[in-house]
């Protein structure tokens, strides 16, 4: 009788998990295939591993020097620099603003939080019409500085909301006691409250990094050669001469690995952190 009850859940969860995990495995498998294996009919599961795509991405070996892989390694470096810098800035700004929003009442606080949230809603293409002009006139187009501004901006809102959620979870008595003992609020924030939300800061940084790391729309318009990021470079691999699948899959796998790593690291706080980001409260 008990087993009968289990059929439906197992089927639903099982089928969905296959649909969910299958394509990702297929990406990683395909990244190790040579050109002929990639186009084999029927698709093969057993093949000789081929590292050409990875050589192009990491700028080593023969494949790195070919014309088709030009600039792929440089774009990996660009991606790392831009995503990391944007993550640090967005997490810092978001932590400060999240604390202020959690602890203080200020004029139009609700409007501020909505404004902050609205950054998540904005269609990148719409604001890009303006950014394109602004970046050109300020000399920010195709520079690290410009792209770091972008990756900071796209994450500040989310970082503020997530951090406000975590700060809301810290009792205000923590600061009250410090203030009564003659410490400044800055001291209480820096040395008492901040250490208590370390996990939240890590989660915020993780999410910010992922969004910065995956960012494509802005990069595709605002960079041309010097500051091109890996996702943008991948899209260029689908050029007029056909699609460089080996490169796309290798670069794709390289883009996917940090995300999986991050998920593994914060698996305990995942649900809470992600729910904070959407609802701004404990789930």
């Amino acid at each position: 009788m008990k087993n009968k009850h289990l059929i439906l859940p197992v089927v639903i969860l099982g089928v969905y998990t296959l649909y969910n995990v299958g394509p990702l495995l297929w990406l990683m498998i395909s990244s190790l295939k040579s050109r002929p294996d990639l186009f084999a009919i029927p698709p093969t599961l057993v093949f000789e591993p081929h590292l050409g795509g990875y050589e192009a991405v990491f700028g080593v070996g023969a494949a790195a020097d070919s014309a088709s892989s030009h600039g792929v390694f440089a774009s990996l470096i660009n991606s790392i620099v831009i995503a990391c810098s944007g993550t640090v800035l967005a997490t810092m700004f978001g932590t400060l603003a999240g604390y202020a929003a959690s602890r203080f009442n200020f004029v139009a606080k609700g409007d501020f939080m909505f404004f902050v949230l609205s950054t998540r809603m904005i269609p990148p293409v719409a604001v890009m019409v303006f950014y394109h002009q602004m970046f050109s006139s300020l000399g920010l187009a195709d520079t690290w500085t410009g792209m770091i501004m972008i990756t900071t901006f796209i994450n500040v809102g989310l970082a503020t909301w997530i951090m406000k959620g975590f700060f809301d979870g810290v009792p205000t008595e923590v600061e009250a006691i410090a203030l009564m003992n003659g410490y400044s609020r800055w001291y209480a924030f820096r040395h008492l409250v901040l250490p208590m939300v370390r996990g939240g800061v890590a989660a915020t940084a993780g999410f910010s990094f992922i969004f910065a790391w995956n960012e494509f729309a802005f990069g595709s318009i605002l960079t041309t050669t010097e500051a091109k990021t890996l996702p943008v470079r991948i899209s260029a691999a689908a050029g007029s001469t056909g699609i460089e699948w080996t490169q796309i899959f290798a670069a794709g796998t390289v883009l996917v690995i940090p995300v999986i790593l991050f998920f593994y690291l914060i698996r305990r706080h995942l649900l809470m952190g992600m729910t904070f980001g959407v609802l701004g409260k404990k789930g």
Partner: peptide
């Protein structure tokens, strides 16, 4: 299982797009 199921939404849409184009 929950953690694994959450992964796709965090991946680069451009990579996902090409992956499905291949599939």
């Amino acid at each position: 299982l929950f953690t694994i199921l959450m992964i796709p939404m965090m991946l680069s849409p451009i990579v996902i797009g090409f992956l499905w184009r291949y599939i």
